[in-house]
Amino acid sequence: AREMGVIAAMRDGFGFIKCVDRDVRMFFHFSEILDGNQLHIADEVEFTVVPDMLSAQRNHAIRIKKLPKGTV
């Protein structure tokens, strides 16, 4: 199932999404941004959540798609 959120932080090559449906900041890597979009803080996005290979306690966001403002 796809989830929605807002870009909360951007770093060098990765960032975090503030999720709508869960009280966490979800890690993502820039390589998972679809359509070659440039994302910025406060952009609204949808994404798929998958378990982190390195840590069973953590998840991360993949297949991130920018949404029109006002969607979330």
Rank of each mutant, 00 (worst) to 15 (best):
A1L: 09
A1M: 11
M4P: 01
M4R: 11
M4Q: 14
M4A: 05
G5R: 12
I7L: 01
I7C: 00
I7F: 04
I7K: 00
A8N: 06
A8P: 07
A8T: 14
A8D: 13
A8V: 13
A8Q: 13
A8M: 10
R11A: 15
R11K: 14
R11Y: 15
D12Q: 13
D12V: 04
D12G: 08
G13A: 06
G13Q: 03
G13H: 08
G13R: 04
F14S: 08
G15F: 02
G15D: 06
G15R: 00
F16S: 04
F16T: 10
F16W: 14
F16V: 13
F16P: 00
F16E: 13
I17H: 01
I17Y: 00
I17Q: 00
K18V: 05
C19S: 08
C19P: 12
V20F: 11
V20T: 07
D21H: 11
D21A: 09
D21Q: 11
R22T: 09
R22M: 03
R22E: 07
D23G: 11
D23W: 01
V24H: 03
V24W: 02
R25F: 12
R25C: 09
R25Y: 10
R25D: 15
R25H: 14
R25A: 11
R25I: 12
R25W: 14
M26V: 15
M26F: 12
M26Y: 14
M26Q: 02
M26A: 09
F27V: 12
F27Y: 14
F27K: 14
F28V: 03
F28Y: 02
H29Q: 06
H29R: 13
H29S: 14
H29W: 12
H29V: 12
H29L: 06
H29I: 11
F30L: 07
F30E: 12
F30H: 10
F30N: 08
F30P: 03
S31T: 14
E32A: 06
E32K: 14
E32L: 00
I33W: 06
I33N: 02
I33A: 05
L34W: 05
L34F: 04
L34R: 07
L34K: 09
L34N: 06
L34C: 15
L34G: 08
D35L: 03
D35E: 11
D35Y: 09
D35C: 04
G36H: 07
G36I: 06
G36A: 08
N37D: 12
N37R: 11
N37H: 15
Q38M: 11
Q38K: 13
Q38T: 13
Q38L: 07
Q38H: 14
L39M: 05
L39A: 00
L39T: 03
L39V: 08
H40A: 14
H40D: 10
H40V: 09
H40K: 11
H40E: 14
H40Q: 13
I41K: 01
I41Q: 07
I41W: 02
I41V: 13
A42Y: 08
A42Q: 09
A42N: 13
A42H: 12
A42L: 10
D43H: 00
D43P: 01
D43G: 02
D43A: 02
E44N: 05
V45G: 01
V45I: 06
V45M: 01
V45L: 02
V45S: 02
V45C: 01
E46I: 04
E46C: 02
E46K: 03
E46S: 09
E46Y: 00
E46L: 00
F47G: 03
F47W: 02
F47S: 02
F47L: 01
F47K: 01
V49R: 07
V49H: 05
V49K: 06
V50I: 10
V50P: 05
P51M: 08
P51G: 14
D52R: 07
D52A: 11
D52M: 09
D52C: 14
D52S: 11
M53P: 15
M53K: 15
M53Y: 14
L54S: 15
L54M: 15
L54H: 14
L54R: 13
S55Y: 09
S55C: 14
A56N: 04
A56Q: 10
A56P: 13
A56W: 07
A56V: 11
A56F: 04
Q57W: 10
Q57V: 07
Q57G: 13
R58C: 09
N59E: 11
N59D: 13
N59G: 14
H60F: 09
H60S: 08
H60P: 02
A61T: 00
A61W: 05
A61P: 02
I62D: 00
I62H: 06
R63G: 13
R63Q: 14
I64V: 11
I64L: 07
I64E: 01
I64Y: 02
I64C: 01
K65P: 03
K65D: 01
K66C: 04
K66R: 11
K66W: 03
K66N: 07
K66M: 03
L67V: 09
P68I: 06
P68D: 07
P68E: 09
P68W: 00
K69R: 11
K69W: 07
K69Y: 04
K69E: 05
G70W: 04
G70D: 05
T71M: 07
T71D: 07
T71G: 02
T71L: 04
V72G: 08
V72W: 02
V72L: 13
V72E: 09
V72R: 04
V72C: 09
V72T: 08
